[in-house]
Design a protein around this nucleic acid. Sequence first.
DNA 1: CGTTTAGTTGATTTTGCTCAACTGCCGTGG
DNA 2: CCACGGCAGTTGAGCAAAATCAACTAAACG
Lengths: 212, 212
Amino acid sequence: MADADLVRLGSLAEVVTLKAGAVLTREGDVAPYVFNITSGSLRVYKLLPDGRRQITGFLFAGDFLGLAIGEHYVFSAEAIEPTTVCRFRKGPFRALVESSSPLEHMLLHRTSHELAAAQNQMLLLGRKTAIERLASFLLDLPGHDPARPTAPGHVRLPMKRGEIADYLGLTIETVSRVLTRMKAKGIISMPSQSDLIVERPDLLRAHADGEV
Amino acid sequence: MADADLVRLGSLAEVVTLKAGAVLTREGDVAPYVFNITSGSLRVYKLLPDGRRQITGFLFAGDFLGLAIGEHYVFSAEAIEPTTVCRFRKGPFRALVESSSPLEHMLLHRTSHELAAAQNQMLLLGRKTAIERLASFLLDLPGHDPARPTAPGHVRLPMKRGEIADYLGLTIETVSRVLTRMKAKGIISMPSQSDLIVERPDLLRAHADGEV
DNA sequence: CGTTTAGTTGATTTTGCTCAACTGCCGTGG
DNA sequence: CCACGGCAGTTGAGCAAAATCAACTAAACG
Protein backbone atom coordinates (compact mmCIF):
# COMPACT_ATOMS: atom_id res chain seq x y z
CA MET A 1 0.00 0.00 0.00
CA ALA A 2 1.36 3.40 -0.97
CA ASP A 3 2.20 5.95 1.74
CA ALA A 4 -0.20 8.45 0.21
CA ASP A 5 -3.02 5.95 0.77
CA LEU A 6 -2.08 5.54 4.39
CA VAL A 7 -2.17 9.28 4.87
CA ARG A 8 -5.59 9.49 3.24
CA LEU A 9 -6.82 6.53 5.28
CA GLY A 10 -5.53 8.21 8.40
CA SER A 11 -7.44 11.38 7.66
CA LEU A 12 -10.67 9.40 7.63
CA ALA A 13 -10.04 7.57 10.86
CA GLU A 14 -11.40 8.06 14.33
CA VAL A 15 -9.80 6.14 17.16
CA VAL A 16 -12.19 4.25 19.44
CA THR A 17 -11.16 2.75 22.75
CA LEU A 18 -13.03 -0.28 24.07
CA LYS A 19 -13.11 -1.77 27.55
CA ALA A 20 -13.08 -5.55 27.89
CA GLY A 21 -16.55 -6.80 26.98
CA ALA A 22 -17.60 -3.63 25.16
CA VAL A 23 -19.83 -4.14 22.13
CA LEU A 24 -18.51 -2.75 18.85
CA THR A 25 -21.23 -3.94 16.47
CA ARG A 26 -24.50 -5.76 16.93
CA GLU A 27 -25.91 -8.05 14.25
CA GLY A 28 -28.78 -6.36 12.44
CA ASP A 29 -27.79 -2.80 13.33
CA VAL A 30 -27.21 -0.33 10.51
CA ALA A 31 -23.57 -0.47 9.50
CA PRO A 32 -22.05 2.97 8.95
CA TYR A 33 -18.47 1.99 9.81
CA VAL A 34 -15.55 -0.15 8.79
CA PHE A 35 -13.01 -0.93 11.51
CA ASN A 36 -9.34 -1.72 11.74
CA ILE A 37 -7.99 -3.09 14.99
CA THR A 38 -5.05 -1.20 16.45
CA SER A 39 -4.47 -3.22 19.59
CA GLY A 40 -6.22 -5.90 21.66
CA SER A 41 -8.62 -8.52 20.36
CA LEU A 42 -12.26 -8.98 19.40
CA ARG A 43 -14.68 -11.88 19.19
CA VAL A 44 -17.00 -11.88 16.18
CA TYR A 45 -20.14 -13.98 16.51
CA LYS A 46 -23.66 -14.74 15.41
CA LEU A 47 -26.59 -15.58 17.65
CA LEU A 48 -29.76 -17.62 17.33
CA PRO A 49 -32.90 -16.25 19.00
CA ASP A 50 -32.64 -18.68 21.93
CA GLY A 51 -29.11 -17.53 22.71
CA ARG A 52 -27.04 -20.20 20.99
CA ARG A 53 -23.85 -18.47 19.87
CA GLN A 54 -21.36 -19.28 17.15
CA ILE A 55 -18.11 -17.33 17.30
CA THR A 56 -16.99 -17.03 13.69
CA GLY A 57 -13.57 -15.66 14.49
CA PHE A 58 -11.19 -13.88 16.79
CA LEU A 59 -9.60 -10.71 15.43
CA PHE A 60 -6.30 -9.17 16.47
CA ALA A 61 -4.28 -6.03 15.75
CA GLY A 62 -4.16 -5.26 12.04
CA ASP A 63 -7.37 -7.08 11.13
CA PHE A 64 -10.26 -5.37 9.35
CA LEU A 65 -13.92 -5.75 10.29
CA GLY A 66 -17.12 -4.82 8.51
CA LEU A 67 -15.96 -4.93 4.91
CA ALA A 68 -18.95 -6.96 3.79
CA ILE A 69 -21.30 -4.98 1.64
CA GLY A 70 -24.76 -4.35 3.01
CA GLU A 71 -26.79 -1.89 4.98
CA HIS A 72 -26.59 -3.85 8.21
CA TYR A 73 -23.96 -5.70 10.15
CA VAL A 74 -24.32 -9.45 9.76
CA PHE A 75 -22.42 -10.25 12.95
CA SER A 76 -21.81 -8.89 16.42
CA ALA A 77 -18.37 -7.98 17.70
CA GLU A 78 -17.11 -7.42 21.25
CA ALA A 79 -13.76 -6.64 22.80
CA ILE A 80 -12.20 -9.60 24.61
CA GLU A 81 -9.67 -7.41 26.38
CA PRO A 82 -9.06 -3.63 26.38
CA THR A 83 -8.89 -2.83 22.67
CA THR A 84 -8.47 0.13 20.36
CA VAL A 85 -9.84 0.30 16.82
CA CYS A 86 -9.76 2.80 13.97
CA ARG A 87 -13.19 3.60 12.67
CA PHE A 88 -13.90 4.76 9.08
CA ARG A 89 -17.19 5.97 7.67
CA LYS A 90 -18.16 3.45 5.04
CA GLY A 91 -18.84 5.89 2.19
CA PRO A 92 -15.50 7.72 2.20
CA PHE A 93 -13.68 4.47 2.98
CA ARG A 94 -15.19 2.78 -0.02
CA ALA A 95 -14.46 5.76 -2.24
CA LEU A 96 -10.84 5.64 -1.16
CA VAL A 97 -10.65 1.91 -1.75
CA GLU A 98 -12.02 2.29 -5.26
CA SER A 99 -9.48 4.96 -6.04
CA SER A 100 -6.56 3.03 -4.61
CA SER A 101 -5.65 -0.15 -6.36
CA PRO A 102 -3.00 -1.25 -3.82
CA LEU A 103 -5.45 -0.77 -0.96
CA GLU A 104 -8.14 -2.76 -2.72
CA HIS A 105 -5.58 -5.39 -3.58
CA MET A 106 -4.63 -5.77 0.06
CA LEU A 107 -8.27 -6.11 1.07
CA LEU A 108 -8.89 -8.79 -1.57
CA HIS A 109 -5.81 -10.63 -0.39
CA ARG A 110 -6.92 -10.54 3.24
CA THR A 111 -10.51 -11.42 2.47
CA SER A 112 -9.39 -14.42 0.41
CA HIS A 113 -7.30 -15.61 3.31
CA GLU A 114 -10.21 -15.20 5.67
CA LEU A 115 -12.39 -17.18 3.31
CA ALA A 116 -9.86 -20.01 3.19
CA ALA A 117 -9.76 -19.99 7.00
CA ALA A 118 -13.55 -20.07 7.08
CA GLN A 119 -13.55 -23.17 4.89
CA ASN A 120 -11.15 -24.89 7.25
CA GLN A 121 -13.48 -24.00 10.08
CA MET A 122 -16.42 -25.54 8.18
CA LEU A 123 -14.48 -28.79 7.95
CA LEU A 124 -13.82 -28.56 11.66
CA LEU A 125 -17.41 -27.81 12.63
CA GLY A 126 -19.01 -30.22 10.21
CA ARG A 127 -16.78 -33.25 10.45
CA LYS A 128 -14.25 -33.23 13.28
CA THR A 129 -14.67 -34.80 16.73
CA ALA A 130 -14.27 -32.80 19.93
CA ILE A 131 -10.61 -33.72 20.43
CA GLU A 132 -9.83 -33.02 16.78
CA ARG A 133 -11.45 -29.59 17.12
CA LEU A 134 -9.43 -28.70 20.19
CA ALA A 135 -6.21 -29.95 18.60
CA SER A 136 -6.83 -27.85 15.47
CA PHE A 137 -7.63 -24.84 17.61
CA LEU A 138 -4.49 -25.12 19.71
CA LEU A 139 -2.34 -25.40 16.60
CA ASP A 140 -3.97 -22.46 14.82
CA LEU A 141 -4.22 -20.05 17.69
CA PRO A 142 -0.59 -18.92 17.99
CA GLY A 143 -0.45 -18.15 14.27
CA HIS A 144 -3.18 -15.53 14.59
CA ASP A 145 -2.28 -13.92 17.86
CA PRO A 146 0.26 -11.12 17.37
CA ALA A 147 0.78 -11.05 21.16
CA ARG A 148 1.86 -14.67 21.13
CA PRO A 149 4.53 -15.74 23.59
CA THR A 150 7.97 -16.35 22.21
CA ALA A 151 8.55 -19.68 23.91
CA PRO A 152 7.97 -22.47 21.39
CA GLY A 153 5.11 -24.75 22.27
CA HIS A 154 3.65 -22.15 24.58
CA VAL A 155 0.06 -21.13 23.77
CA ARG A 156 -1.71 -18.20 25.40
CA LEU A 157 -5.46 -18.69 25.85
CA PRO A 158 -6.73 -15.12 26.18
CA MET A 159 -10.36 -16.26 25.92
CA LYS A 160 -12.54 -18.11 28.40
CA ARG A 161 -13.72 -21.71 28.03
CA GLY A 162 -17.13 -20.49 26.94
CA GLU A 163 -15.59 -18.62 24.03
CA ILE A 164 -13.51 -21.58 22.95
CA ALA A 165 -16.65 -23.73 23.14
CA ASP A 166 -18.70 -21.30 21.05
CA TYR A 167 -15.91 -21.06 18.50
CA LEU A 168 -15.59 -24.84 18.16
CA GLY A 169 -19.29 -25.70 18.28
CA LEU A 170 -18.97 -27.49 21.64
CA THR A 171 -20.04 -26.89 25.25
CA ILE A 172 -17.87 -25.56 28.06
CA GLU A 173 -17.95 -28.97 29.74
CA THR A 174 -16.73 -30.79 26.65
CA VAL A 175 -13.86 -28.33 26.18
CA SER A 176 -12.86 -28.86 29.80
CA ARG A 177 -13.08 -32.65 29.58
CA VAL A 178 -11.07 -32.79 26.35
CA LEU A 179 -8.32 -30.61 27.79
CA THR A 180 -8.21 -32.93 30.79
CA ARG A 181 -7.96 -35.93 28.49
CA MET A 182 -5.12 -34.27 26.55
CA LYS A 183 -3.29 -33.59 29.80
CA ALA A 184 -3.75 -37.23 30.85
CA LYS A 185 -2.30 -38.38 27.53
CA GLY A 186 0.72 -36.10 27.98
CA ILE A 187 -0.08 -34.14 24.81
CA ILE A 188 -0.31 -30.84 26.65
CA SER A 189 0.31 -29.38 30.09
CA MET A 190 -1.25 -26.30 31.65
CA PRO A 191 0.83 -24.16 34.01
CA SER A 192 -2.25 -21.98 34.50
CA GLN A 193 -5.79 -21.96 33.17
CA SER A 194 -4.85 -19.54 30.41
CA ASP A 195 -1.39 -20.84 29.60
CA LEU A 196 -0.81 -24.07 27.84
CA ILE A 197 2.27 -25.94 26.70
CA VAL A 198 2.21 -28.34 23.81
CA GLU A 199 4.31 -31.27 24.97
CA ARG A 200 3.74 -33.51 21.96
CA PRO A 201 3.26 -31.39 18.82
CA ASP A 202 3.35 -34.56 16.74
CA LEU A 203 0.36 -36.09 18.54
CA LEU A 204 -1.51 -32.80 18.53
CA ARG A 205 -0.98 -32.46 14.79
CA ALA A 206 -2.12 -36.04 14.20
CA HIS A 207 -5.33 -35.40 16.13
CA ALA A 208 -5.95 -32.09 14.33
CA ASP A 209 -5.64 -33.78 10.96
CA GLY A 210 -8.03 -36.53 11.98
CA GLU A 211 -5.47 -39.29 11.67
CA VAL A 212 -6.76 -42.49 13.17
CA MET B 1 -16.50 -4.33 -15.33
CA ALA B 2 -15.42 -2.52 -18.49
CA ASP B 3 -15.82 -4.19 -21.87
CA ALA B 4 -12.11 -3.89 -22.55
CA ASP B 5 -11.45 -6.01 -19.44
CA LEU B 6 -13.83 -8.66 -20.65
CA VAL B 7 -12.04 -8.81 -23.98
CA ARG B 8 -8.68 -9.12 -22.25
CA LEU B 9 -10.09 -11.75 -19.89
CA GLY B 10 -11.46 -13.64 -22.88
CA SER B 11 -8.09 -13.70 -24.56
CA LEU B 12 -6.62 -15.48 -21.53
CA ALA B 13 -9.33 -18.08 -21.27
CA GLU B 14 -9.46 -21.69 -22.27
CA VAL B 15 -12.80 -23.44 -22.18
CA VAL B 16 -12.89 -26.77 -20.35
CA THR B 17 -15.78 -29.20 -20.57
CA LEU B 18 -16.46 -31.52 -17.65
CA LYS B 19 -18.59 -34.66 -17.45
CA ALA B 20 -20.68 -35.24 -14.35
CA GLY B 21 -18.32 -36.34 -11.59
CA ALA B 22 -15.17 -35.06 -13.29
CA VAL B 23 -12.51 -33.69 -10.97
CA LEU B 24 -11.45 -30.09 -11.61
CA THR B 25 -9.03 -29.54 -8.71
CA ARG B 26 -7.68 -31.76 -5.99
CA GLU B 27 -6.71 -30.40 -2.57
CA GLY B 28 -2.93 -30.20 -2.28
CA ASP B 29 -2.22 -30.15 -6.03
CA VAL B 30 -0.24 -27.25 -7.44
CA ALA B 31 -2.64 -24.52 -8.47
CA PRO B 32 -1.82 -23.01 -11.85
CA TYR B 33 -5.37 -21.98 -12.74
CA VAL B 34 -8.27 -19.77 -11.75
CA PHE B 35 -11.70 -20.85 -13.00
CA ASN B 36 -14.97 -19.23 -13.88
CA ILE B 37 -18.02 -21.42 -14.33
CA THR B 38 -19.86 -21.01 -17.62
CA SER B 39 -22.62 -23.56 -17.13
CA GLY B 40 -23.52 -26.43 -14.82
CA SER B 41 -22.52 -26.78 -11.17
CA LEU B 42 -19.59 -27.85 -8.99
CA ARG B 43 -19.16 -29.16 -5.48
CA VAL B 44 -16.18 -27.79 -3.55
CA TYR B 45 -15.02 -29.86 -0.59
CA LYS B 46 -12.31 -30.79 1.85
CA LEU B 47 -11.42 -34.29 3.01
CA LEU B 48 -9.97 -35.81 6.15
CA PRO B 49 -7.54 -38.72 5.71
CA ASP B 50 -10.18 -41.30 6.70
CA GLY B 51 -12.58 -40.08 4.05
CA ARG B 52 -14.83 -37.76 6.04
CA ARG B 53 -15.89 -35.02 3.65
CA GLN B 54 -17.09 -31.49 4.21
CA ILE B 55 -18.59 -29.77 1.20
CA THR B 56 -17.82 -26.08 1.67
CA GLY B 57 -20.02 -24.90 -1.16
CA PHE B 58 -21.85 -25.49 -4.38
CA LEU B 59 -20.88 -23.25 -7.30
CA PHE B 60 -23.02 -22.32 -10.29
CA ALA B 61 -22.66 -20.40 -13.56
CA GLY B 62 -20.83 -17.11 -13.03
CA ASP B 63 -18.97 -18.14 -9.90
CA PHE B 64 -15.19 -17.95 -9.61
CA LEU B 65 -12.99 -20.66 -8.13
CA GLY B 66 -9.36 -20.72 -7.06
CA LEU B 67 -8.86 -17.06 -6.24
CA ALA B 68 -7.18 -17.81 -2.93
CA ILE B 69 -3.53 -17.02 -2.96
CA GLY B 70 -1.14 -19.91 -2.54
CA GLU B 71 0.89 -22.43 -4.47
CA HIS B 72 -1.58 -25.24 -3.95
CA TYR B 73 -5.31 -25.70 -4.04
CA VAL B 74 -6.79 -25.87 -0.56
CA PHE B 75 -9.94 -27.69 -1.69
CA SER B 76 -11.11 -30.22 -4.25
CA ALA B 77 -13.76 -29.46 -6.83
CA GLU B 78 -15.86 -31.79 -8.98
CA ALA B 79 -18.64 -31.33 -11.49
CA ILE B 80 -22.08 -32.33 -10.18
CA GLU B 81 -23.60 -32.35 -13.67
CA PRO B 82 -22.11 -31.73 -17.13
CA THR B 83 -20.34 -28.43 -16.67
CA THR B 84 -18.19 -25.98 -18.62
CA VAL B 85 -15.64 -23.66 -17.07
CA CYS B 86 -13.26 -20.98 -18.31
CA ARG B 87 -9.72 -21.56 -17.19
CA PHE B 88 -7.14 -18.78 -16.73
CA ARG B 89 -3.45 -19.17 -15.96
CA LYS B 90 -2.93 -17.62 -12.57
CA GLY B 91 -0.01 -15.33 -13.45
CA PRO B 92 -1.62 -13.47 -16.36
CA PHE B 93 -4.99 -13.49 -14.58
CA ARG B 94 -3.50 -11.82 -11.56
CA ALA B 95 -1.63 -9.31 -13.68
CA LEU B 96 -4.87 -8.39 -15.38
CA VAL B 97 -6.68 -8.09 -12.06
CA GLU B 98 -4.03 -5.76 -10.70
CA SER B 99 -4.27 -3.59 -13.78
CA SER B 100 -8.06 -3.48 -13.76
CA SER B 101 -9.66 -1.78 -10.85
CA PRO B 102 -13.26 -2.69 -11.79
CA LEU B 103 -12.32 -6.34 -12.12
CA GLU B 104 -10.58 -6.38 -8.78
CA HIS B 105 -13.51 -4.55 -7.28
CA MET B 106 -15.90 -7.20 -8.51
CA LEU B 107 -13.72 -9.96 -7.08
CA LEU B 108 -13.56 -8.23 -3.70
CA HIS B 109 -17.32 -7.81 -3.73
CA ARG B 110 -17.90 -11.47 -4.54
CA THR B 111 -15.33 -12.74 -2.08
CA SER B 112 -16.86 -10.64 0.70
CA HIS B 113 -20.23 -12.15 -0.06
CA GLU B 114 -18.78 -15.63 -0.02
CA LEU B 115 -17.18 -14.89 3.33
CA ALA B 116 -20.50 -13.72 4.76
CA ALA B 117 -22.11 -16.92 3.46
CA ALA B 118 -19.31 -18.95 5.04
CA GLN B 119 -20.02 -17.32 8.40
CA ASN B 120 -23.68 -18.26 8.12
CA GLN B 121 -22.60 -21.80 7.38
CA MET B 122 -20.41 -21.81 10.50
CA LEU B 123 -23.45 -20.88 12.57
CA LEU B 124 -25.34 -23.69 10.89
CA LEU B 125 -22.62 -26.31 11.38
CA GLY B 126 -21.69 -25.28 14.88
CA ARG B 127 -25.03 -24.58 16.49
CA LYS B 128 -28.07 -25.70 14.50
CA THR B 129 -29.97 -28.98 14.89
CA ALA B 130 -30.55 -31.34 11.97
CA ILE B 131 -33.99 -29.95 11.10
CA GLU B 132 -32.74 -26.38 11.39
CA ARG B 133 -29.89 -27.20 9.02
CA LEU B 134 -32.19 -28.70 6.42
CA ALA B 135 -34.61 -25.80 6.71
CA SER B 136 -31.80 -23.27 6.21
CA PHE B 137 -30.51 -25.25 3.26
CA LEU B 138 -33.87 -25.44 1.53
CA LEU B 139 -34.38 -21.70 1.92
CA ASP B 140 -30.90 -20.77 0.66
CA LEU B 141 -30.64 -23.15 -2.25
CA PRO B 142 -32.93 -21.43 -4.77
CA GLY B 143 -31.12 -18.13 -4.26
CA HIS B 144 -27.84 -19.60 -5.49
CA ASP B 145 -29.02 -21.77 -8.33
CA PRO B 146 -29.32 -19.80 -11.57
CA ALA B 147 -31.21 -22.75 -13.09
CA ARG B 148 -33.87 -22.47 -10.44
CA PRO B 149 -37.41 -23.29 -11.42
CA THR B 150 -39.77 -20.38 -11.83
CA ALA B 151 -42.62 -21.82 -9.77
CA PRO B 152 -42.61 -20.21 -6.34
CA GLY B 153 -41.96 -22.62 -3.51
CA HIS B 154 -40.45 -25.12 -5.89
CA VAL B 155 -36.89 -26.19 -5.03
CA ARG B 156 -34.71 -28.23 -7.35
CA LEU B 157 -32.31 -30.60 -5.56
CA PRO B 158 -29.65 -31.24 -8.21
CA MET B 159 -27.39 -32.98 -5.70
CA LYS B 160 -27.72 -36.38 -4.04
CA ARG B 161 -28.54 -37.01 -0.38
CA GLY B 162 -24.89 -37.73 0.32
CA GLU B 163 -23.89 -34.31 -0.93
CA ILE B 164 -26.55 -32.57 1.11
CA ALA B 165 -25.37 -34.53 4.14
CA ASP B 166 -21.72 -33.61 3.59
CA TYR B 167 -22.66 -29.97 3.10
CA LEU B 168 -24.73 -29.84 6.30
CA GLY B 169 -22.42 -31.91 8.50
CA LEU B 170 -24.94 -34.76 8.79
CA THR B 171 -25.30 -38.33 7.53
CA ILE B 172 -27.39 -39.50 4.59
CA GLU B 173 -29.76 -41.26 6.96
CA THR B 174 -30.38 -38.16 9.04
CA VAL B 175 -31.08 -36.07 5.94
CA SER B 176 -33.57 -38.68 4.78
CA ARG B 177 -35.28 -38.93 8.17
CA VAL B 178 -35.56 -35.15 8.55
CA LEU B 179 -37.09 -34.76 5.08
CA THR B 180 -39.59 -37.47 6.02
CA ARG B 181 -40.39 -35.63 9.24
CA MET B 182 -40.89 -32.38 7.32
CA LYS B 183 -43.24 -34.13 4.92
CA ALA B 184 -45.18 -35.57 7.86
CA LYS B 185 -45.54 -32.11 9.34
CA GLY B 186 -46.81 -30.72 6.04
CA ILE B 187 -43.92 -28.27 5.74
CA ILE B 188 -42.79 -29.67 2.41
CA SER B 189 -43.90 -32.15 -0.23
CA MET B 190 -41.75 -34.01 -2.72
CA PRO B 191 -43.19 -34.76 -6.17
CA SER B 192 -39.93 -36.59 -6.92
CA GLN B 193 -36.71 -37.26 -5.06
CA SER B 194 -35.04 -34.23 -6.61
CA ASP B 195 -37.99 -31.86 -6.64
CA LEU B 196 -39.40 -30.35 -3.54
CA ILE B 197 -42.23 -27.94 -2.82
CA VAL B 198 -42.24 -25.72 0.22
CA GLU B 199 -45.83 -25.89 1.47
CA ARG B 200 -45.30 -23.81 4.60
CA PRO B 201 -42.58 -21.23 4.02
CA ASP B 202 -43.44 -19.67 7.37
CA LEU B 203 -42.72 -22.85 9.30
CA LEU B 204 -39.61 -23.55 7.25
CA ARG B 205 -38.30 -20.06 7.98
CA ALA B 206 -39.07 -20.45 11.69
CA HIS B 207 -37.10 -23.70 11.81
CA ALA B 208 -34.19 -22.20 9.84
CA ASP B 209 -33.92 -19.31 12.28
CA GLY B 210 -33.94 -21.65 15.24
CA GLU B 211 -37.17 -20.30 16.66
CA VAL B 212 -38.47 -22.49 19.43
C1' DC C 1 -37.01 -57.62 -16.51
C1' DG C 2 -32.94 -57.87 -13.89
C1' DT C 3 -29.28 -55.28 -12.03
C1' DT C 4 -27.43 -51.39 -9.86
C1' DT C 5 -27.59 -47.41 -7.28
C1' DA C 6 -30.07 -44.12 -4.34
C1' DG C 7 -33.05 -43.55 -0.75
C1' DT C 8 -35.79 -44.94 3.32
C1' DT C 9 -36.68 -47.09 7.62
C1' DG C 10 -35.60 -49.61 11.90
C1' DA C 11 -32.60 -51.13 15.92
C1' DT C 12 -28.78 -50.05 18.50
C1' DT C 13 -24.75 -47.39 19.88
C1' DT C 14 -22.05 -43.43 20.70
C1' DT C 15 -20.65 -38.83 21.29
C1' DG C 16 -21.35 -34.94 23.29
C1' DC C 17 -25.12 -32.34 25.87
C1' DT C 18 -27.71 -31.30 30.09
C1' DC C 19 -28.18 -30.88 34.76
C1' DA C 20 -25.99 -30.79 39.04
C1' DA C 21 -22.47 -30.78 42.45
C1' DC C 22 -18.12 -29.49 43.68
C1' DT C 23 -13.34 -27.10 43.53
C1' DG C 24 -10.20 -23.43 42.91
C1' DC C 25 -9.19 -18.73 42.31
C1' DC C 26 -9.41 -14.01 43.33
C1' DG C 27 -11.13 -9.76 45.26
C1' DT C 28 -13.39 -7.35 48.87
C1' DG C 29 -14.26 -6.20 53.42
C1' DG C 30 -14.71 -7.25 58.26
C1' DC D 1 -5.07 -11.70 57.70
C1' DC D 2 -8.59 -14.56 57.04
C1' DA D 3 -13.77 -15.18 55.92
C1' DC D 4 -17.00 -14.75 52.51
C1' DG D 5 -18.99 -14.39 47.94
C1' DG D 6 -18.80 -14.79 43.14
C1' DC D 7 -17.24 -16.55 39.00
C1' DA D 8 -14.56 -19.81 36.09
C1' DG D 9 -13.48 -24.26 35.63
C1' DT D 10 -13.78 -29.24 36.53
C1' DT D 11 -16.04 -33.53 37.28
C1' DG D 12 -19.86 -36.87 37.48
C1' DA D 13 -24.43 -39.14 36.21
C1' DG D 14 -27.94 -39.58 33.12
C1' DC D 15 -29.90 -38.30 28.72
C1' DA D 16 -30.74 -37.26 23.86
C1' DA D 17 -29.65 -36.29 19.15
C1' DA D 18 -27.54 -38.03 15.60
C1' DA D 19 -24.30 -41.78 14.00
C1' DT D 20 -23.75 -46.49 12.86
C1' DC D 21 -25.10 -50.86 11.34
C1' DA D 22 -28.39 -53.43 8.86
C1' DA D 23 -32.40 -54.55 6.12
C1' DC D 24 -35.43 -53.26 2.95
C1' DT D 25 -37.74 -50.41 -0.99
C1' DA D 26 -37.82 -47.46 -4.95
C1' DA D 27 -35.89 -45.49 -9.00
C1' DA D 28 -32.84 -45.53 -12.93
C1' DC D 29 -30.79 -47.97 -16.78
C1' DG D 30 -29.40 -51.10 -19.83
